[in-house]
Design a protein around this nucleic acid. Structure first.
Lengths: 154, 154
DNA sequence: AAAATATATCTCGAATTCGAGATAATTATA
DNA sequence: TATAATTATCTCGAATTCGAGATATATTTT
């Protein structure tokens, strides 16, 4: 192929542009949200773990990894930190001795009851750049993007 | 306020959902792109720096930081790595002795000439989950989101 | 039942990023 | 001009994340 169809080239430029803009937007948003969470003495990963336990109840440590999307070695690290802060504790599974559950302590629950609504409010504020219909549209499109990206394209 | 307007609550849920979906999609996409770049023995930050120099020419090290969105200490680290790989070199600025330019070496240029088109193709493939019109729409919306997120909301 | 395979968690070292602060050079102010 | 403030880069130590591999337990296969 000596030359590429003009339209093809344009489309690739659009894709590249989308990636760049996605990156930028994400970084801005994450930075703001990180800022909010820092007020509670937590980082995003720690918060995500607490949020998971708060909404879904006790979880095997390994499940946490797949939901929060981090490597198993990283979970050990985060769970250690949260345990030191007395926000969660480890509880062995009686049926399967390989498994350890992460469980919110009373302190952890209390903290989440307080900060989760505030956090939700903060996210809503930070994402105020588009209206609700646009958000719904973006959710659909982002789901498609994410699902497709995970597919094997080789 | 004893209760919150139902609509308000829903809207906050949508915002939260958008954030979650955005995170997920981004992580999937980044992972795939990282994978592609790894084939060239680079990571995303290194690639971003090379790309910047390739498209915008020599840059003061500090400018690189603001474009690629990393801290000054991190740039020093990345520039060191790329210099060791002989893909860029440091060049002092004659007018302002505080400034050091990062400059693509011939090897660096050659590499980018080869891999940039491939990389662009890969991104296009990875982002195949939505069509071009949806991409254009997302670009606009993401720009709005990003700009707004950067605003001071305190 | 023994052997092989799979699963859950953890340890370790490496890579990457950050923030605080040091240093040197430049620009603005008194 | 001397002083103060700003700017560009770098150093250092800490935080976070990862992947490879270790260990213990459970499940599947022979």
């Amino acid at each position: 192929m000596v030359y590429q169809d003009k339209k093809q080239v344009d489309e690739k430029d659009i894709s590249l542009k989308l990636f760049v803009v996605l990156n930028r937007a994400m970084q801005s948003i994450k930075k703001q949200i990180e800022e909010d969470i820092k007020r509670y003495g937590l980082n995003q990963t720690e918060f995500a773990v607490l949020e998971l336990l708060y909404h879904k109840g006790d979880q095997p440590i390994q499940k946490i990894g797949s939901k929060v999307l981090i490597a198993s070695s990283s979970i050990t690290y985060v769970v250690d930190k949260l345990e030191k802060k007395k926000l969660i504790r480890r509880k062995p599974c009686p049926n399967d001795r390989r498994i350890t559950y992460a469980v919110l302590t009373e302190d952890g629950k209390e903290l989440m009851r307080t900060i989760f609504p505030e956090h939700k409010e903060a996210i809503h504020d930070i994402l105020g750049g588009v209206d609700i219909d646009e958000k719904k549209m973006m959710i659909d499109q982002l789901k498609k993007l994410g699902t497709y990206a995970n597919k094997d394209r080789s």
